[in-house]
Nucleic acid binder design. Structure first.
Length: 485
RNA sequence: GGCCCCGUCGUCUAGCGGCCUAGGACUCUGGCUUCUCAAGCCAGCUACGAGGGUUCGAAUCCCUUCGGGGCUACCA
């Protein structure tokens, strides 16, 4: 790699919303670039335009931004090696493909998909390793004439020489692949469009990528990339360093994918997971700082992250642990940040107006501190605070049955009696007055007495702290709700 | 089938030949606290897949085996 600055690339193929596995890779790419003071390059691999859509590309860009994984080269920010969408670099790839043909590294292959399929089947049946048999490595003039007469359009195939490819994977050590199991592969489709196999290698070289950290599924395609480097005339010491990251798997032991569990980052965003929690949790999937630290900020992650500390074994995604970390991160929020994160959730649930009124903002700001430590996800906020923004509460039938039947009338009327003349409307005063009347005077169990009031005020026997809630709600509405029982 | 990767508590992991009667975190269980729910605090359960070696000594090194996963496309 000579003396080039470290450059790490994240190059997803957005055939859907970015998922947990993608993001873990992006996070490691980003963290390593930041750790080394290198460049983080973001490239879109959209050579398969039948599967990649503009919406998915836009969503990928948005997701990375939302997570705070900023890139130095790539879409929107540009850079010296753009464009960073492979679909905009088509002539570059075809030039290289032509050159490979001229050099004899690649050749035109006229075999049709059906023929290929049939021969693969035959190989399997005879116990051979399936793969391209090299038929078109040399074509007779008459065959060529016949194919052309038939109107067949050739693909361009890379010639894999005899021998093997050995490279050092930073995570897995030395890897060797015998070329008997790396068949000649297609670089360019019959319609002239490039494949990943061509584009990925060409771009990594042209964009001066020094480190390729990517999913383990690409491990066995590495020899093909190296083959392209060779055809491009890149010296071995200038190949990027490879590090194949272990999978993030779903709970059912399959590779985490769109069909397996909640994997789309968009879903986590809607649920109210904080970017920092997602990154913190994902960082722990396949990597650890080496000590017992687990709660890390993004900054700490960049300081501590090295490829050497990445595990080689796959990790299972554990929602419970993510939730735990998310709760920690929410608790660590300043009131102002907490407010900013909460607002969209409150507005989406129509608990507050859009734009929020001054009065509502004031209530939200008072109420957030009392729910902050009991949240797992931001999406729980509207449900917890809704009772503060309605005229009449919806009484939960189960709660009513449990706490508002029987002698509740007495509790409620006593509460009204002592709260009405209360001189200072503060949670301390409310607490004191109710405790004196209900617990000391009437001799009731706190749990029973306060639960009755809680249900009357909030609608449920589960709520934020009662006295604080009553203070925020205001005397008028508290008394009205009590009177309504 | 072939090639490749991987294998420490239920889960994520620490461990890189003696500090390990295996540590931490999440989960779970019990308790404390308590106006509910949380949070917090304390305690507890639970692991080196198996079998051979190497060595004075192995979770750590080697081999075999079993198990899991990936690749085997004109997807990436």
């Amino acid at each position: 790699m000579g003396n080039r600055p470290i450059k790490v690339r994240f190059a997803p193929s957005p055939t859907g919303d970015l998922h947990v596995g993608n993001i873990r890779t992006a996070l490691f790419d980003w963290a390593y670039a930041r750790h080394t003071g290198g460049i983080f390059l973001f490239r879109i691999e959209d050579t398969d335009r039948s599967r990649v859509t503009d919406e998915y590309i836009a969503a990928a860009i948005d997701t990375l931004k939302w997570l705070g994984l900023s890139w130095d080269e790539g879409p929107e920010v540009g850079g010296p090696h753009g464009p960073y969408l492979q679909s905009q670099r088509l002539d570059i790839y075809s030039e290289w493909a032509d050159r490979f043909i001229k050099q004899g590294d690649a050749y035109y292959c006229y075999c049709s998909p059906d023929e290929l399929e049939a021969r693969r089947e035959a190989q399997k049946e005879s116990g051979q390793a399936p793969g391209y048999d090299g038929k078109c490595r040399s074509i007779s003039d008459e065959d060529l004439a016949r194919y052309r007469a038939q109107g067949r359009e050739p693909v361009i195939r890379m010639r894999m020489p005899e021998g093997s490819t050995t490279f050092t994977d930073v995570i897995r050590g030395e890897c060797t692949f015998d070329h008997n199991f790396v068949p000649d592969f297609v670089l360019v489709r019959a319609d002239g469009s490039p494949l990943y196999t061509l584009a990925v290698a060409v771009d990594d070289v042209l964009m001066e990528v020094t480190h390729v950290l990517r999913g383990e599924d690409l491990l066995s395609s590495t020899p093909r990339q190296i083959r392209v480097y060779q055809a491009m005339g890149v010296k071995a010491e200038d190949y990027p360093l490879f590090a194949h990251l272990p999978f993030v798997m779903g709970t059912d032991n399959a590779k985490l994918s769109k069909r397996n569990g909640e994997t789309s980052i968009a879903w986590y965003r809607e649920q109210g997971f904080l970017p920092e929690a997602i990154c913190n949790y994902l960082a722990l999937l396949g990597w650890s700082p080496g000590d017992d630290r687990e709660n890390l900020t993004l900054k700490e992650l960049t300081e501590l992250f090295t490829i050497e500390r990445v595990n080689s074994n796959p990790a299972r995604f554990d929602m419970k642990k993510l939730e735990n970390i998310n709760g920690d991160k929410i608790r660590a929020l300043t009131l102002d940040d907490f407010y900013q994160w909460s607002l969209p959730f409150l507005q989406k649930a129509k608990v507050v107006a859009t734009p929020i009124t001054n009065e509502q903002e004031s209530v939200v700001r008072q109420a957030l501190p009392i729910i902050q430590e009991r949240l797992i996800k931001l999406s729980e906020i509207p449900g917890m605070l809704a009772f503060l923004f309605t005229e009449k509460v919806d009484l939960d039938p189960d709660s009513v049955a449990k706490y508002l039947d029987g002698d509740a009338k007495g509790i409620i009327s006593k509460a009204i009696e002592v709260l009405t003349p209360l001189s200072t409307w503060s949670h301390e005063a409310i607490d004191g007055a109710l405790r004196a009347a209900l617990i000391e005077q009437m001799g009731l169990k706190p749990r029973l007495a306060f639960s009755a009031i809680r249900v009357a005020i909030t609608g449920s026997h589960i709520s934020p702290p009662l006295f604080e809630s009553m203070e925020i709600l205001g005397r008028e509405r508290v008394l009205a709700r009590l009177a309504a029982i």
